[in-house]
């Protein structure tokens, strides 16, 4: 399936997400349909509160839609229990967060290896792969540094390496440059694009930055929870 040139790797059908009940009900997403192809770079844009992050959460299996379905690499998330969804996140998706979310007790290479640890592989068994990935993202020689010893741009590079360790088909990023200066942000974006393009990975990114959105193959623009 993943070898097909124009395979759809991520689909959302009639996605609706509602928070609260009655008078306090908030409709974060209203009947959103998306289909994203392998190797595509899709940006999700829109004003604050438009439902960008909610859509990313649903597409990444971090949250469940009130109605609608999400299919990741041919697997309907609704058919999975929480453990099954966790496995999808662990093995087929890579996440990059705005605030890096590295574990402070671990070194850079160990942070990269954590997804494999969650899969039952001891950290040391993933060290070579993790160090190689750090080399690839430009952090060769920084593998033993703790997060507190790295700059913001370096932290996000470690986070990108972590997202790549399981060789995912999809990278989901939530404002990955939102917490970085312009130069660091540009470097991280270049890194993400390269890593996605070289391996024909799909990159889905929430961003406020029109410049970044302009680099995307396609922009999904949300307003009040609906695609425009």
């Amino acid at each position: 399936m993943t070898d097909t040139a124009t395979t759809t790797v991520l689909e959302g059908h009639a996605l609706t997400k509602t928070y609260g009940e009655g008078a306090g009900e908030v409709r974060a997403l209203v009947s959103v349909d998306v289909a994203i192809e392998r190797g595509e770079f899709v940006a999700i844009g829109g004003p604050s509160g438009s439902g960008k992050s909610t859509l990313l959460h649903l597409l990444g299996g971090l949250d469940e839609p009130t109605t609608g379905t999400v299919v990741v690499d041919g697997v309907d998330l609704a058919s999975l229990d929480p453990a099954g969804r966790a496995e999808i996140r662990r093995r087929r998706l890579g996440f990059v967060f705005q605030f890096f979310n590295l574990l402070p007790a671990l070194s850079a290479w160990e942070n990269v290896a954590v997804p494999r640890l969650l899969d039952g592989v001891p950290l040391k068994d993933t060290k070579a792969a993790a160090v190689a990935l750090l080399d690839r993202v430009g952090l060769g020689g920084r593998g033993d540094h703790r997060p507190s010893e790295l700059s913001g741009g370096q932290l996000q590079r470690v986070a990108v390496a972590r997202a790549l360790i399981a060789d995912p088909v999809l990278i989901l990023a939530d404002e990955p440059t939102g917490n970085l200066d312009q130069a660091s942000g540009a470097e991280v974006m270049a890194l993400l694009r390269t890593e996605a393009a070289d391996q024909r990975r799909t990159l889905v990114m929430v961003t406020h930055d029109d410049g970044i959105a302009g680099e995307a193959d396609r922009v999904l623009h949300l307003v009040d929870g609906q695609l425009t």
Binding site: R90, R91, P115
Partner: peptide
């Protein structure tokens, strides 16, 4: 809590 959320997001299961 945040550390746990991160581990959950990247595929960790609640039990372990």
């Amino acid at each position: 809590r945040r550390e746990m959320a991160t581990l959950r997001a990247i595929g960790g299961e609640p039990g372990p």
